[in-house]
Amino acid sequence: MSAKTHPGTDAVISKGWLAAHKWLLIRRAVQLSILGLFLAGPLLDVWIIKGNLTSSLTLGVLPLSDPFILVQSLLAGHVAAASALIGAAIVLTVYALVGGRSYCSFVCPMNVVTDASRWLAKRLDLPKGWQPARETRLWILASVLVTALITGVMAWEMLNPVTILHRGLVYASSYVWTVALAIFLFDLVVSRRGWCGRLCPMGAFYGLIGSVSLTRVSAQNRVACNDCMDCYAVCPEPHVITPALRGADTGQGGGVGPVILSGDCTNCGRCIDVCAKDVFKFDLRFHNDPPSNEQEGEGQGESKTISTDRHAA
């Protein structure tokens, strides 16, 4: 297609197309299946899941609720009934196991919109645009919670494009495309990967879960890395890779373990796909022994320094 080498080309050659797109395909399949399950009720009258991502009931027995929404509700002054609390506990547990921002990459309907925007931006070779600090989303999250506390209503839910989009799809809203289009254009021309990567407070919330969650991507075979940089090219949060991938030879401290510990990582698995050397794989956060096991704590600190250096590069 384009003269530039597409990231993952080496992986396609060495592993075959299917293996080099495995997690991408699984991810799209999961996204579509979840949306399909929600839509099967209203469209086909097959009621497996009722409700939407803020709260749902599966097969009439399993409640699932979004903990981010319930935290807002709690701060606004309402203690939810048992069904919603149980649902939120189940959701929290699941993401604590599979990785917090797996929500972003496998479930959130906005991911498809922003990935499409990213794809088009690359095709059109558009500039990155406005790139606020990645921590901005944490401050927006703080604002969301403060506002709920002060106003006594879930103020953010009057604006939240993520919940508006999913609800709009499931409940056949006539104007839901406006929300998707707004985010699509924002990511396309204002700020590349700006919504999911820098602003979305929901992603920030799930990122906090991700910073303690069990399943993580690990650069377990990092000695094989040939510096092709394909993983950085496909990663929506490339700063998370550096400490794990480059941590082995970090200065005097003895290095950092290979597991990507940053909660920003969405566990999308694209790095696993595009790596021709099979450096990455899904692993548990505990399988993170640094090459020499002395001074683990300092290793963490140093990894941050490197991360910023890499980011500039």
Binding site: G41, K50, T54, S55, D66, S73, V153
Partner: peptide, 17 residues
């Protein structure tokens, strides 16, 4: 209305049932 907007998470399960 104030209480409702603090408590309703807009899942639509009431609408479905």
């Amino acid at each position: 209305e104030g209480e409702f907007l603090a408590a309703c998470i807009r899942c639509g399960l009431c609408v479905r049932d």
